[in-house]
Design a binder for these strands. Structure first.
Length: 680
RNA sequence: GCCGGCAUAGCUCAGCUGGUAGAGCAGCUGAUUUGUAAUCAGCAGGUCGUCGGUUCGAAUCCGACUGCCGGCUCCA
C-alpha cells in the first residue's frame, strides 16, 4: 500500500493492539538480525490482523525458519527490554543510517539503505525519532508498548514478497507476517476463527456444493457454473430485472465482441488496452494475399538486416586489428554507415508491420458494455423528453487480468455484470445518482450486508493522458458535482485519489471476503468523456443539441464476484429463495404407495417452480438426512407412512433441525410465500 | 506480470532416505425397508499435472512448462 505518509498525530492514535503488534514487528526484526545480521529492513507496521516487517535478505526465509525466528523473538520478549524513544536530528539519523546502525543490532559495513531512503522522505519539519529495544535500534515514529515483555502471545504466519513502497519498479522484499495478542487465549481464538473462515471460503464451498468449476482446458479465470450455481445467478438476474423495471430501466442486449473502431472511440484502446484480450484479426481473401506479400517483404528486409549485422561485426573486428590511422578511420566510417542502414531497415520493417496490422478487421472481446450501450443511445434520435434513459443488460465481459490476480470467483477473466447506463441531463444528475445509491442500499438490506465501505475514487492530475482522459476541466467539474451530491445525500464515504475509471470518477462499494481480501462489489461511475467521444446528443427544450451525462452503475457488481461474496456471506446456507435446492423430499422406505405420495408432493412443488428433488434411495433416513444437510439443502420434507396417512409432511430445515409434521398444503404454501418475499 | 510454496482416484489425504501406487468418502451392483447428521457387502476407479533429464530403475532427485495457493501490483 503506497498511501501518503501518516502524520505523527495519526500514528499517535494507534490502538493498544496495534501498538502491541507494531512492537512485535520490532521484535521480529531483532530476531531476524540475531540470525542474519546483514538483513536490511524497510517497513514494519501493524496491519488488520497482525503485523509484518519487510526485509531484504539473500537467504530466502521460509516457514521452516519460523521456529528458529520465533525462538529468538521469545528470548527478546523474555529479556523484557524497555522500548526507549530517542529524538535525533536529521544529520544524526543519516549518520547512523550510513553506518548501518538503523534497524540493526550494531554498526555494519553496509548502510541501512531503506531506512536512509525513508529519512529522505520525512518532511523537514517533522521530528525524527528512533526506538531501541536491547541492542536493536530502529528508525521509527512509534508508538510502542512499554517493554518487549508486554507482547503477550505471537506467532509468525507466512512470508510473501512485496515491492518496496508497493512499486513494481522497486526491488522485491520478503514480507514476514505474524500476529500478536495480549493473551494466549486471544491468539488461539484468532486461529480458531481463521479455521472457521476457511470453511466459508467460496472456492471450497463452491466445489463442495457443486456451484461452479474451473477447468484447465477452458482456461484460468474462466469459471463455469454448474446447475446449482447457475440457479443463483438466475435468481439474482430475476431480482435485478424486477428492481430495474420498477425503477424505469429498459433492457437491451448486445454482442460480446466489437471492432477496434468502437474501442478507439470509447477510449478503451489507449486507456484500457492492458486489461483487454488481444484482438481477433479477420482477413478476407484479398487481404490474405496482400498480407502474404508484406510478410515476404518483411522476411527479405530481415535477411538484409542480418547480413548487415554480419558485416558490421567483421568491420568492428578490422577496426581493432588495423593499426594504420587512415584505414582505421575508414573502418569507423563504415561502422557508422552500417548502423545508419540498419536504422533505415528497421524503420521499413516497422512500417510494413504496421501495414500488416491494419489489414482486415480487428475484433475485440468487450471488456465493458458501455460502448455498445452508447451506440444504442445514438441509434435513435433523442429528445430531452427521452431522458433519463436507462439501458440495462446483464452483459458478459472479458478482461485479461494478470495471472497472479485471479482469485476464485472474485477475480476472473469472464464476468457478467449487472450493468446499466443512465443517460441524463445535468439537472437530472442528482436525482438519478441518488436513486442508484438507494438501489444499492435496498439490495444490501435484502442480503443483510452491513459491513461495507463507500469509496469515492477521483483522478490524479499527474496521470492525465496516461491513466485518465486528458480533460482537466471536466474532471474537476464532474468530481465536484459528484462530491456535492454525495455529501448532500448524507452517505458515509471515503475519498481515494488516483483510483477513478479512465472516463470519470466512481463510487465503489467495498466489502471483505472471508479471507480478509477487499473487493469492490458494486460500482457507480460518472462518465463525461465517452458521451463526447461518441458524439451522443439529445435535443433540448431550446432546440439545441446537448451532450448527456452518463452514469455507469452495477449495484450487484458481477455474478462472479457477487456470488462468490454471497457464498461466504451465507457460508453456503442460502436463504430459501436463493437456495440451489430448495426442497428435498426424503422418503422413509420405498413402498410403492409411499413413493407415489412423495412424488405427488414433488410435482406440486415443481408445478409452482420450486426447485425440489426427491431422494428415493435405499439409504436409511439418517443417511438421507445427512446427505441433504451436507449439501445444505434448505428444506427437507421427510415423508414416512405416518405422514402419508395424515396427508402431511415432516419439515426439517437446514441448520434448524426437525420442525415436526404439518399438512402438506400448509408446508407448500409457506415455502411459496418465503420464496416470493425473498425472506432472509 | 513479479517473489515464494504446492500438484497422487471425482473429493480429503497416506505413500520414510529412488525398487514401478493405498485409505476413507463419493460412484456402480446387490442385499437391507428404515422416523430426522453415515445399513451392510462386493465391484470399479490413477499414463502420480505435462514434457525433458539423471539412474539398471523415478510418484520420489534435477530442469522447463502449465495450473493452483500465499502475498505484491492491479481491479467488478
Amino acid at each position: 500500500m503506497n498511501e501518503e505518509r501518516k502524520t505523527p498525530e495519526v500514528r499517535a492514535q494507534m490502538t493498544d493492539i496495534e501498538r502491541l503488534r507494531h512492537s512485535a514487528s520490532h521484535v521480529l526484526a531483532t530476531a531476524i538480525l540475531k540470525i542474519w545480521p546483514e538483513a536490511q529492513f524497510a517497513a514494519g507496521p501493524p496491519v488488520e490482523n497482525g503485523f509484518y516487517y519487510d526485509v531484504d535478505l539473500p537467504h530466502r526465509i521460509s516457514p521452516d525458519d519460523f521456529e528458529k525466528i520465533e525462538a529468538e523473538m521469545k528470548k527478546e520478549i523474555k529479556a523484557n527490554h524497555p522500548f526507549e524513544r530517542m529524538e535525533v536530528s536529521r544529520d544524526e539519523a543519516l549518520a547512523l543510517g550510513k553506518k548501518g546502525r538503523l534497524a540493526a543490532l550494531s554498526e555494519r559495513h553496509e548502510p541501512s539503505r531503506y531506512k536512509l531512503d525513508i529519512i529522505e522522505n520525512i518532511p523537514p519539519d517533522e521530528k525524527i525519532s528512533l526506538y531501541r529495544n536491547g541492542d536493536f535500534i530502529d528508525l521509527c515514529a512509534g508508538p510502542h508498548v512499554m517493554r518487549t515483555g508486554n507482547i503477550g502471545a505471537f506467532k509468525l504466519t507466512n512470508v510473501a514478497s512485496a515491492y518496496y513502497k508497493g512499486d513494481e519498479k522497486n526491488p522485491q522484499l520478503q514480507r514476514v507476517y505474524g500476529t500478536a495478542f495480549k493473551t494466549k487465549k486471544e491468539l488461539d481464538d484468532y486461529f480458531a476463527m481463521l479455521e472457521e473462515a476457511k470453511k466459508r471460503d467460496h472456492r471450497k464451498l463452491g466445489r463442495e456444493l457443486e456451484l461452479f468449476v474451473f477447468d484447465d482446458d477452458v482456461g484460468p479465470g474462466l469459471p463455469m457454473f454448474l446447475p446449482r450455481g447457475a440457479v443463483i445467478a438466475e435468481e439474482l438476474e430475476k431480482l435485478a430485472k424486477e428492481t430495474e423495471f420498477a425503477a424505469g430501466y429498459q433492457r437491451v442486449r448486445t454482442p460480446h465482441i466489437a471492432r477496434d473502431k468502437l474501442y478507439k472511440k470509447s477510449g478503451h484502446l489507449p486507456y484500457y488496452a492492458g486489461s483487454m484480450f488481444p484482438p481477433m484479426i479477420l482477413r478476407e481473401e484479398d487481404d490474405q494475399e496482400v498480407a502474404r506479400k508484406i510478410e515476404r517483404e518483411i522476411a527479405e528486409l530481415e535477411r538484409q538486416r542480418f547480413e548487415l549485422e554480419l558485416n558490421s561485426g567483421s568491420a568492428m573486428f578490422h577496426a581493432k586489428e588495423e593499426s594504420g590511422e587512415e584505414s582505421r578511420s575508414a573502418e569507423v566510417q563504415k561502422i557508422i554507415d552500417v548502423s545508419k542502414f540498419k536504422h533505415e531497415i528497421d524503420a521499413k520493417i516497422e512500417c510494413k508491420r504496421k501495414q500488416l496490422e491494419e489489414l482486415g478487421d480487428r475484433y475485440y472481446l468487450k471488456a465493458m458494455n458501455c460502448p455498445h450501450h452508447h451506440k444504442l443511445f445514438a441509434a435513435v434520435p433523442r429528445s430531452y423528453r427521452d431522458l433519463p434513459l436507462r439501458l440495462a443488460e446483464y452483459g458478459t465481459d472479458y478482461r485479461y487480468e494478470k495471472s497472479g490476480e485471479l482469485f476464485g470467483l472474485m477475480r476472473v477473466r469472464s464476468l457478467q455484470m449487472n450493468d446499466a447506463h443512465v443517460y441524463c441531463t445535468p439537472e437530472q444528475f442528482e436525482a438519478e445518482f441518488n436513486a442508484v445509491n438507494e438501489m444499492y442500499l435496498k439490495y444490501f438490506k435484502l442480503f443483510g450486508i452491513d459491513k461495507y465501505l463507500m469509496r469515492f475514487s477521483t483522478h490524479d492530475p499527474s496521470k492525465l493522458g496516461q491513466k485518465f482522459v486528458d480533460e482537466p476541466e471536466l474532471w474537476k467539474q464532474t468530481e465536484e458535482m459528484t462530491r456535492r451530491v454525495l455529501k448532500d445525500s448524507g452517505i458515509d464515504y471515503v475519498e481515494v485519489p488516483n483510483e477513478a475509471a479512465f472516463y470519470g470518477p466512481k463510487i465503489d462499494v467495498q466489502v471483505w471476503s472471508v479471507i480478509g481480501r477487499e473487493f469492490s462489489i458494486a460500482t457507480n461511475q460518472v462518465d463525461f468523456a465517452q458521451p463526447r467521444n461518441f458524439d451522443l446528443r439529445y435535443k433540448d427544450r431550446d432546440n439545441i443539441d446537448k451532450i448527456p451525462i452518463c452514469i455507469h452503475r452495477a449495484p450487484l457488481g458481477t455474478h462472479e464476484r457477487f456470488i462468490g461474496f454471497l457464498i461466504e456471506h451465507y457460508a453456503g446456507n442460502f436463504p430459501l429463495w436463493l437456495s440451489p435446492e430448495q426442497v428435498r423430499i426424503l422418503t422413509i422406505g420405498d413402498e410403492p404407495k409411499l413413493i407415489e405420495y412423495a412424488r405427488s408432493i414433488l410435482s406440486e412443488l415443481r408445478a409452482h417452480q420450486v426447485r425440489a428433488e426427491i431422494d428415493e434411495s435405499s439409504d436409511k433416513i439418517n443417511g438421507k438426512v445427512q446427505r441433504a444437510e451436507q449439501m445444505k439443502v434448505h428444506t427437507m420434507f421427510v415423508i414416512g407412512k405416518r405422514d402419508m396417512e395424515a396427508d402431511a409432511v415432516s419439515v426439517r430445515v437446514h441448520g434448524k433441525g426437525n420442525l415436526g409434521a404439518k399438512p402438506g398444503a400448509d408446508a407448500i404454501a409457506e415455502i411459496l410465500l418465503s420464496i416470493k418475499e425473498r425472506r432472509p
